[in-house]
Nucleic acid binder design. Structure first.
Lengths: 157, 157
DNA sequence: GGTGCATAATTGACGTATCAGCTACCCGGA
DNA sequence: TCCGGGTAGCTGATACGTCAATTATGCACC
């Protein structure tokens, strides 16, 4: 037994699998973000925020709820909303009933930006990701992702 | 047939698969990077550069070769090397034979930083990624990643 | 009705990523 | 020799992400 699986040392296969997985998924993420930026002029973060707001009742959300919805820390969201507000994609209003709070509201301009970007974005997802995989591979990718997601969530608790 | 697969519209399953895949792989990447930073005081980019240099003959590489090896644009590498040089992890020397060129050289301090970070990093890879998956899932993850990598490479040409 | 702790959100500092533009140098040919 | 296009690398501007610290408000309790 020359390759007993230890607690620390990684086998060649494990290391190779890890590397191709992390490098490729990172490349995919960066390529998608670049497409969104060059084709529609918004970042992946902008898209995420615009999408959540567009689906919210009244097209507005408390900052905290928005942060939970997109899975970001508040600080990150606050910086991001600041940049989006400067570009007119959203505006901020004081929250009714809790003077500590703030609500992010989707502007018409933000709604238009989301509409313009959606078709190109879906097209890129199909071209870069869905078209590459067979139905079996897509199902396997989903299974792996769901397993990893649950594993990571369990560790963070 | 209510769910004929079009060129643009995504089915619910396709969209869900995409979302869990991209969100989870991004979470994994960020979690790993955070571990490396907090446990060893270096970024994922630092680790990548240190690893390539440590494996190079003479522990030195031309900037262009290093950029190719890690898959970065030259500008990104240049900024990164500047920060690493300021911290003493590498130094830069003029390339012999081509006065345009620069070589990045691993310092002793850089070598030590890589050594200190390797075991915790491997441990994190095992804990966050390898431990989550069955052997079949790991093989499937690798297959998906290799397929995607080849697909993306073909598109970029 | 004040004290003290928790919560909501923002801010500043710093490292990281991308883009466009710049300098310096190489080399082949008029 | 010098002209010109290509190569190597750096820089500045701007956006993004994380951390620690800060401000302002809510609220329970005495």
């Amino acid at each position: 037994m020359s390759q007993r699986r230890g607690r620390t040392a990684l086998t060649r296969t494990e290391l190779d699998s890890w590397r191709v997985f992390v490098e490729t998924t990172d490349d995919l993420r960066a390529t998608l973000a670049g497409r969104l930026q060059s084709e529609s002029g918004i970042s992946a973060g902008d898209y995420r925020v615009l999408l959540e707001l567009s689906e919210a009742p009244g097209r507005r959300l408390r900052s905290s709820h928005l942060a939970d919805a997109v899975g970001w820390e508040r600080s990150r969201l606050s910086h991001h909303l600041g940049r989006m507000e400067k570009r007119g994609l959203i505006r901020r209003e004081a929250a009714a009933g809790d003077n500590r709070g703030a609500e992010a509201v989707l502007t018409d301009e933000g709604r238009d930006a989301l509409r313009r970007s959606s078709v190109p974005h879906f097209h890129a997802i199909r071209e870069l990701f869905l078209d590459a995989l067979t139905p079996d591979q897509l199902a396997a990718a989903r299974d792996v992702a769901e397993t990893l997601r649950d594993h990571l969530a369990a560790l963070e608790r």
